[in-house]
Design a binder for these strands. Structure first.
Length: 440
RNA sequence: GCGCCUAUCGUCUAUCGGUUAGGACAUAGGGUUUUCAUCCCUAGAAGCGGGGUUCGACUCCCCGUAGGCGCGCCA
C-alpha cells in the first residue's frame, strides 16, 4: 500500500510558518515514499474561510512547490458524511446524545473507562495514557455542526490517509482520534508529531516575532527554495552534515525516523545566510526578473537602459544580495543622478582637505583617457595614488563616495565602467561643486 | 491542578554505550580585495542537576528541575 498523507489547514488568510513546515514534511515524506500528498481545506469556519483566504493558501502552496496529487477536498462539502458517521456512532453505542448546560442536544463520543489508550508515534515513540485520564468529548454541536475531531477523522478515513504528520500540539488529540477510528471499524493511521517552531525566547512563534506568515517571507524577498530548505532543517537532519540541498536531494534523504522531537528555534540569521547562498547561485536571468520587478516597484527602473548595462548592474548586485527587499535600496545610484549620500561616508571621505581638487584632477585624467575601461581607470587611479603618496585606497574611497554616495558596494572600476566616462565625471564635478557650496 | 511530551555550543543539529563530542549559522581574530559581499584560515563556545545500570554513559532507567503542549458545543 503506497502511503497517502495530507496537509489539512484551515484557510485563515495567512499560512503560518509552523503550518507550512508540516506541509513540507508531509510533502517530502510522500515524495520520498512514492506516495500521494493530498490537500484538504478545513473550511468549516465559514466566516474566516473566504475565497481570498483559500486563494492565498493555494498561492503559498504553489510558491513553495508543494504540489498535491488529487483535487483538494473541501471539508465544508463533507458535512452530511460527518453527520451520518455521528449517527452511526450513536447507533453502535460509541456515542450518545446529551443536553449539556441546556444548550440543546449534542452528540458526545465515549472514551474508554478502563485500561489504557496508546499509540506509537514515529517520531516520539510510544505515547500512552490511562483511560481514566481521558474524557468523553463532543463530536456534534447542538447546532448540528460536526466538531473538528469528528470531521478530521472521518475525512482521513475517506481519503484513505495512511500517515498523519502534523504539529506536536496534536499529540493529545490523537488519543481521541484513534478511538474514533476504531469505533468506525478502521485501523488508525501511523502518526508522526513534529516539534513546534519557537521564537528566540523559546516561546511559540507568533506574529510578534517578525515574519510569521509565508507571504511575509515572500514579500521580504526570501526564495521559496531557501525557505523550504531552511524549514526542512528545523526538526530534521539528513545526517552527514548535509545542509544545503536541492529539493531532489531532500526527497531522496527524507525519513521520519530522522526527525527530532524537541522544539526548534527559528533563527532568522541562518535563514538570511541561506537565502544569500541561494540568490548567489541563481541563474542571472532568474535574478534579473526579480531585480527588475523590485527596481520597478521602487520607481527607479528605466526602460531605455541598454541591455548590457542592465545586465551589468544586476551582475554586480546579485552576489551582494541576501534578500530581495534590499533592492533597490542598495543600488539606486545606478538608475538616477539623484542618489542619496551616506552622511558618515561623506564626512569621512569627501570632507577632508583637498578632496575637491583631487576629484577635479581625476576628472581631468579620466576625460583624457582614450578608453574608459577597468584597466585604464584602475591604472589611472593607481598612478595618481602613487604620485600623491596616498595609495590606491586614498583615491578609490573618495571617488566611490562621490560616484555612488556610499562607501560600500561593487568594485569601483566595474561601477565606473558601467556609468561611463561622461556620467561618472559629471557626478564627480557635481560633488566638487556641492562641496565648495557647502551643500553636501 | 491533572495528563502528555521534551532537554548536546548563543542558535539549528550530528552522535544510535567506548569520539580530542563533529558540522553549519552567529560571534571574535587573521588572510585576500579599492570598499562591501564572496572566498580562505584560526579561535572561543555544549552533554540541566542528582541517583542508578554497566568494565565504560551525552547515549539506557529512575527522581528532580526547567520548558512546551493539552485539559472548549475552537481548529
Amino acid at each position: 500500500m503506497t502511503p497517502r498523507v495530507r496537509f489539512a489547514p484551515s484557510p485563515t488568510g495567512n499560512v503560518h510558518i509552523g503550518n507550512i513546515r508540516a506541509a513540507i514534511f508531509n510533502w517530502l515524506y510522500a515524495r520520498h515514499e512514492g506516495g500521494q500528498f493530498l490537500l484538504r481545506v478545513e473550511d468549516t469556519d465559514r466566516e474566516r474561510s473566504t475565497p481570498e483566504a483559500i486563494r492565498t493558501l493555494l498561492d503559498v502552496m504553489a510558491w513553495l512547490g508543494l504540489s498535491y496529487d488529487e483535487e483538494p477536498v473541501y471539508q465544508s462539502a463533507q458535512c452530511a458524511r460527518h453527520m451520518a458517521a455521528a449517527e452511526e456512532l450513536v447507533r453502535q453505542g460509541h456515542a450518545f446524545r446529551e443536553n449539556k448546560e441546556g444548550k440543546g442536544e449534542c452528540i458526545v463520543f465515549r472514551m474508554p473507562r478502563e485500561g489504557r489508550v496508546e499509540y506509537t508515534d514515529i517520531v516520539k515513540g510510544t505515547i500512552r495514557k490511562k483511560a481514566e485520564d481521558t474524557q468523553d468529548f463532543v463530536i456534534v454541536r447542538s447546532d448540528g455542526n460536526p466538531v473538528f475531531h469528528l470531521a478530521n477523522v472521518i475525512d482521513d478515513i475517506d481519503m484513505r490517509i495512511t500517515h498523519i504528520i502534523r504539529g506536536d500540539d496534536h499529540v493529545e488529540n490523537t488519543f481521541k482520534h484513534i478511538q474514533i477510528f476504531r469505533a468506525m471499524g478502521v485501523e488508525p493511521p501511523q502518526y508522526a508529531h513534529l516539534p513546534m517552531i519557537v521564537n528566540a525566547m523559546g516561546k511559540p512563534y507568533s506574529k510578534r516575532d517578525g515574519a510569521a506568515f509565508v507571504g511575509e517571507f515572500r514579500d521580504q524577498g526570501f526564495l521559496p527554495e531557501a525557505l523550504f530548505n531552511f524549514l526542512a532543517l528545523l526538526g530534521w537532519a539528513p545526517g552527514e552534515d548535509r545542509e544545503q540541498m536541492t529539493r531532489d536531494e531532500m526527497v531522496a534523504m527524507f525519513t521520519l525516523d530522522r526527525c527530532k522531537s524537541s522544539a526548534a528555534r527559528f533563527d532568522i540569521k541562518k535563514l538570511t545566510w541561506m537565502n544569500g547562498e541561494y540568490i548567489r547561485r541563481l541563474p542571472p536571468a532568474d535574478f534579473m526578473a526579480e531585480f527588475k520587478a523590485r527596481v520597478k516597484a521602487g520607481g527607479y527602473w528605466r526602460e531605455d537602459l541598454p541591455p548590457a548595462e542592465r545586465d551589468g548592474i544586476a551582475a554586480l548586485v546579485q552576489p551582494r544580495t541576501k534578500f530581495y527587499s534590499e533592492i533597490p535600496g542598495n543600488c539606486t545610484y545606478f538608475f538616477t543622478e539623484d542618489y542619496a549620500f551616506d552622511a558618515r561616508s561623506v564626512e569621512k571621505r569627501l570632507k577632508p582637505e583637498g578632496v575637491p581638487e583631487l576629484l577635479e584632477a581625476v576628472v581631468a585624467r579620466f576625460e583624457a583617457l582614450p578608453a574608459f575601461d577597468h584597466a585604464t581607470t584602475e591604472a589611472t587611479l593607481r598612478a595618481m595614488g602613487d604620485e600623491r603618496g596616498v595609495g590606491l585606497g586614498g583615491m578609490v574611497h573618495p571617488v566611490r563616495v562621490a560616484a555612488s554616495g556610499l562607501s560600500d558596494g561593487p568594485g569601483l572600476f566595474e561601477l565606473l565602467v558601467l556609468l561611463g566616462c561622461p556620467r561618472a565625471c559629471a557626478r564627480l564635478r557635481r560633488v566638487v561643486a556641492r562641496l565648495r557650496e557647502g551643500t553636501l
